[in-house]
Amino acid sequence: MSGVVRVVGLAKHYGNGNALVRAVDDVDLEVATGEAVVITGPSGCGKSTLLHLMGGLDRPDAGEVWIAGRRIDHTSERTRARLRRDNVGFVFQEFHLMEELTAVENVELPALLAGRSSRQARRRATALLEQVGLERQAGHLPSALSGGQKQRVAIARALVNEPAVLLADEPTGSLDSAATIEVLRLFERLRANGQTLVVVTHDQRTAATADRMVGMRDGAFVEDVALGPETASAAQILTAGSRE
C-alpha cells in the first residue's frame, strides 16, 4: 500500500431516470507519495466531484477512498474532518479565504484547529508566508491582496499542517497570466520538494507541473500518461506563456 491517495471503483451519481448524471463513474486511481498528478477534461466531466470525494468532502455512491492508508468513505463526518485536518490540504479556484482575517490569521487557522498552540501556529504560518513570498503582506486583509497573492495565501494555508496530499481545484482558474505564473512557480517548487499533489485544471500550462496527467470525460478516465523528465520544463512553458 504505497499510495497516499487511492480510490477503487469510485462512483457518484446525481439525479435519477432520464436526468441521471454519472458525475464520477467507476474510477480507479492511485497517487504515490511525492507524485504530482494533473486531472484534465472538459467542463462538467466530474473533476471537482472526484476531487471532493478524494478529500472526503462528499460521500461516494460506490467504491472506496483511501487516504494515508485509511479508508475514509464509510467513516463519520467527524473522523473525516480529523483526517482532512491532518492529511489533506485544499486549494480552490475562488480562494475561499476568510475575509475578516488577515493573511497570517488565515494561514494559521488549520494549525489552530489541529490543536497547535497559538505561538507555534503563528510561527509556522509566518514561515509559510515567507516561502510563498508574502511575508510583507502577512498583516493584510484578503481585500487588500491581488488574486495571485490571495491564491498563494490559500496555498500556504493548505500546507500549514504538512498534509500528505494537496488537492487543488482549478487553482489558476480565476487568475490572469501573470498571477497564474506566480502560482505555477509555487506548485513547481512544491513538486520539487516532494509534496504529493493532485491538481484539477484545463490549463495546459498547469499540466507542465505534473509527473502524470489523467484525462477525464463523462465521469471516467480516458487517458493516463506519465510525463517524463524530457517534457518541457514548467519554467520554459511558463516563459513562453507569459510572452503570448
Binding site: H96, M98, L113, A114
Partner: peptide
C-alpha cells in the same frame, strides 16, 4: 460558506 471552508480545513461538525 465560512463553515464549509472551515470544515475543508478540518473543523468537525461538532466544532
Amino acid at each position: 460558506r465560512l463553515l464549509a471552508v472551515a470544515r475543508t480545513l478540518g473543523a468537525t461538525p461538532a466544532e
